[in-house]
Write a protein that binds this DNA or RNA. Structure first.
Lengths: 348, 348
DNA sequence: GTCCCACCATGAAAATTTTCTTGACCAGGC
DNA sequence: GCCTGGTCAAGAAAATTTTCATGGTGGGAC
């Protein structure tokens, strides 16, 4: 009312007949305030032409990239989705990179201070590779936690945190069915099942194979780099002379290695060997375009952020599980197997 | 001394003979405190066995990804470098995505509140695509700013902020010299010079071409997607029938489009046409492996973070320019031009 | 029905942070 | 040389946030 004299929260408190502490809680959304009181404070603020929204301290959520040396497009997209969802609700995302061993006891983990202080970050999204010990450690704090479930080292237990999955099991199943539909029976899976993301994908593959009464067969080269794994696995597969008309690589990057090995062997994709991938990250840049399974990673990020934010509203819930569906995307890396084509040619 | 009774900052203030405000300033590194006083407070804190470090409020720097719909590996790597450098000095990185038009006046820009509040983010790293108006807007705040310079829309003026560049001009020069060294003279540049990153790269190309007394020639397809641009540019180039033995694509992604068009025309890389790229992002996954120019993007990120942090220490400096060198990386996408090879064959 | 206990919203008080004020110091102009 | 204005560190005061204490409420046991 007066000539632009600064209005303090104290003034608002007095005008609304509540304590300064309560106004502080209303403004910053810290602590619980009954809806009635909150509405009253809000109303009085409006009357005093005091813009509460402008004084809200933006709240922060940590995006913890676990045990990955770099920010791969896979995680970038989760991060981007996460940020978009957060901003819509007035949160912001702090990017944190954290490396630790899965066998370090929870109490001995070397966690950056910013994660342990209760007053900086309200919650965490865990992406990358994580393990039970960090989850245990974070459970000791009051932070809200949501974890990208596909890439957590097993074993791990559900708890007071949410997990968001993408349906790689179903994706693996769909891809295998797709290859089978073209007439393939000798389909090999390339990928080391000790990594959970390959293992889940394999589960879908194995189900489809067993439904078709064909044996599930895996090459699991013991190396971490996915591309290298695809390359080496395919080399050894082709060297053995085992019958193989299609290769299902557990990730697009692995499929790149498969392409390389197939080419080096003087064979062509898809004429000699069909190839399938999973994740749709590199597929678009490959020649021929890879048949793969699309994962809506932005949706995964959004779901993770939504979990954390809703958990902050209602802390004492049991852990939820959210499943993001995947879709088969066909490119040009699969074709009917040679024998089938030859048979068809004969028939014609 | 007493039986674990909580020590308050007030106690420390009294013991050190300073005001509570000063202790607060020392602990949180806000405001200026003379070294002498700071040392005294620190000393007394040690004596009282009060761990000041544990109470430091971690400081935050915003990483502003401008006008990019997604977090490309290019920017991911800058972000990762940035985060690494920040953590070393007790800072953390808030990831922000911001879209705005370059022609909106600085005052009218719709900036998220978190960026305008002085008390949340101490500084900003600008990556992605930015323009002068945002720089002007941020100059009105007291935040420290460092901008990734290559991708700022021109024109823009130096000011009270630092700029970190990678040497794409020199990279463009080196790549062109490399192709010339193989015997190429009909080298075309593919990339739209209206984008500063292509323009700078072109500058290096043009210098090398002029030094070799050959004309600089550009195809600049008018489309934003780099891969698409490479594809369309090459198609039109080959359709024209102009002499061309090598194509220098302004980015690896553009080079992917070039590969595609060359293949569709029934030609081979490098036998028929040599291809060079720039940025070393996709090069490793291309067949044949692309000759390109490596940019140490993590170093760019580190340098950006270092600029912001040192500017926070000493705010009133003029803007610095930091240049990160680039290096030529040869793959298998270049070879002597057909004519030269044929001549050599004749000689043999 | 009544007692007990746990929980929770709230105000009061304490602690901390931010703003405002002061006095010292320095550079430049007269 | 002396005044003036500007800058800046630091304390004082104000504002805000956090912690602590309290009283009310509701659910379950007896």
């Amino acid at each position: 009312m007066a000539k632009g004299k600064k209005i303090r929260l104290q003034d608002l408190a007095r005008a609304a007949g509540v304590s300064g502490a309560t106004v502080s809680r209303v403004v910053n959304r810290t602590g619980k305030v009954s809806p009635a009181l909150e509405a009253r404070v809000q109303r009085v603020a409006d009357r005093l032409k005091l813009d509460l929204a402008a004084r809200v301290k933006p709240r922060l959520i940590g995006f913890v990239l676990g045990n990955r040396p770099l920010l791969h497009p896979f995680h970038s997209r989760i991060l981007a989705g996460c940020e978009a969802a957060c901003v819509e609700q007035g949160y912001h995302v702090v990017f944190l990179s954290l490396n630790y061993r899965p066998d370090t006891p929870a109490e001995a983990l070397d966690i950056p201070r910013v994660m342990l202080r209760q007053d900086i970050l309200d919650g965490f999204v865990l992406a990358g590779i994580h393990s039970q010990n960090l989850l245990d450690r974070l459970a000791q704090t009051s932070a809200a936690v949501a974890v990208q479930g596909n890439n957590v080292q097993r074993p791990w237990h559900e708890g007071r945190y949410d997990a968001v999955y993408y349906d790689d099991v179903e994706g693996g199943y769909a891809m295998t069915r797709h290859l089978q539909g073209l007439g393939h029976r000798d389909i090999w899976f390339v990928g080391n099942r000790q990594y959970p993301w390959f293992d889940r994908c394999y589960d879908g593959y194995a189900r489809a194979m067993s439904e078709a009464d064909t044996p599930a067969r895996v090459v699991a080269p013991d190396c971490e780099a996915p591309r290298e794994a695809g390359y080496r696995g395919t080399i050894s597969l082709l060297a053995e002379g085992t019958p193989v008309t299609a290769i299902f690589a557990g990730s697009d990057a692995t499929a790149q290695g498969v392409y390389e090995a197939v080419r080096e062997a003087g064979l062509r994709v898809p004429e000699d060997i069909s190839v399938g991938g999973l994740d749709d990250i590199e597929a678009g840049t490959m020649h021929p375009r890879l048949d793969t399974v699309r994962i809506e990673l932005e949706d995964v990020g959004r779901a993770l952020a939504d979990c954390v934010m809703s958990r902050l509203e209602a802390p004492h819930l049991e852990g939820r599980r959210v499943m993001i569906p995947t879709t088969l995307v066909t490119g040009a890396s699969s074709a009917p197997p040679r024998r089938a084509r030859m048979a068809r040619a004969r028939r014609a």
